[in-house]
Design a binder for these strands. Structure first.
Lengths: 234, 234
DNA sequence: CTTTCAGATATTGAATACAATATTCGTAGT
DNA sequence: ACTACGAATATTGTATTCAATATCTGAAAG
């Protein structure tokens, strides 16, 4: 299953189903930045007309995940390196705050839930060829669950949205499993402070984590081009 | 002209025009929270079919300005008091950061532009019946221009979006012009720090300003019900 | 006078249809 | 070969149509 934690159960209609599916494909990297999104092909793929497809894309457009050029259709957003840095700077600020608030308001159940996700991440099968993808899925879940402990719906929305903006780049660029240990350590550090109730420290750790992820991403980016797969593009 | 700074020149199509128009109506309060948005009426009002209307609404949905309930259509989002507080908390964090960065990176041209807006706000005709609306328009411009000085597109987007989420409430709830002097003073304080290059202070002032606006909003809210005009709703 | 229910009407969500524009492909000219 | 151009094709943006569902209206029962 690809990254998804926002459409828990029921789908609102065709539009919503298409939205979720395209969104997952973008986040997972199977629809890489720059891909052209052919409305007809997508409609055919989902067995619907182009109308719900366009509505789904309009939503993604507002989220910043796709871009529309008049008469040329939608393409998956392509962030420049500067924009990626920008988003990470924002994440540092927002996640520091969110993590601190979460640490303030967390319940025992929250601690348990986050601990469980963390344990799953640390216990992943290192030989599984889908290791990176699995880890990335859990990673998203970890951050979402942690921030959700703050009990602030809007805060969660914004934080998640910021994370999703750069998710494709993280997935596409990290082909080595070296980052996993580092990531686990940083998560563990955040969690300890979170569990022990040290809001200040938890926030600081979260900020550091963002910074660390950004640094690794930039290093990876410097040494690898971007191949465009485009499984959906006609 | 109602609040708008994101669609500078050309419109991308009917969808985009409708989007901008509905958005302005929501932000200005002429389409108050809770209003039902009848697709047919809106389409007729703009002289287009329902298709571009639905696409526009899908974008607004992703922005959080409207809500969709299956088979029941779109309504203008209604934030609870708690959610409003949430958004303001986020704004405090984001605007503090944005203002600090803006103070760091601002040019002489930025200072001039912000000063000009500030002067306009302070010089508004106090007897104009549209005073509150005019002030609110300039207020949005002030914050947008200030933050734009940071030269960070994504940061601007997020900050603006957060501001827009609560804009309708500020406009609808502030019927007294008492807040104008207070607002002007706070803006002046932010500007002084901004112009003098004291990033830390500018950030702190921005945070205080958010807090102050929230406090006034909550006070107003406590003492007034919300009448629903709904000029668009059929 | 209020509540319940059935039929009439309105509204939504999605498919299909169609005009306008972009893109592609083949041809001709250098 | 390579480029310039123009017809053929594909794609987009929007309107129209249609089935499914929600809402409204008003009469009948309590």
């Amino acid at each position: 299953m690809a990254a998804s934690s926002d459409s828990p159960i029921a789908v609102q209609g065709l539009q919503d189903a298409v939205y979720g599916s395209i969104r997952s494909s973008i986040l997972s990297g199977s629809l890489p930045p720059g891909s052209r999104l052919n409305q007809g092909s997508l409609a055919a793929r989902f067995g619907v007309s182009r109308v719900p497809v366009r509505e789904a894309m309009s939503r993604l457009q507002a989220e910043g995940l796709v871009v529309l050029r008049p008469r040329r259709g939608f393409t998956v957003s392509y962030l420049t390196v500067d924009e990626i840095i920008e988003v990470f700077e924002l994440r540092m600020v927002v996640e520091e705050h969110a993590t601190a608030v979460a640490t303030w308001r967390r319940t025992q159940a929250d601690i348990g839930a986050v601990a469980e996700i963390l344990a799953k991440m640390e216990g992943l099968d290192r030989t599984d060829p889908g290791l990176l993808g699995n880890w990335a899925d859990h990673n998203r879940e970890f951050h979402a669950r942690l921030i959700a402990s703050a009990g602030r719906s809007k805060l969660s929305e914004v934080a998640l949205q910021l994370g999703d903006m750069v998710e494709p780049y993280i997935r596409l660029r990290s082909t080595r499993s070296a980052g996993i240990d580092l990531g686990n350590n940083e998560h563990r550090a955040i969690f300890e402070a979170f569990a022990s109730g040290d809001a200040d420290k938890a926030g600081r750790m979260a900020r550091l984590h963002c910074d660390s992820v950004l640094k690794r991403l930039l290093k990876e980016t410097a040494s690898s081009g971007s191949e465009k797969t485009g499984q959906f593009a006609k």
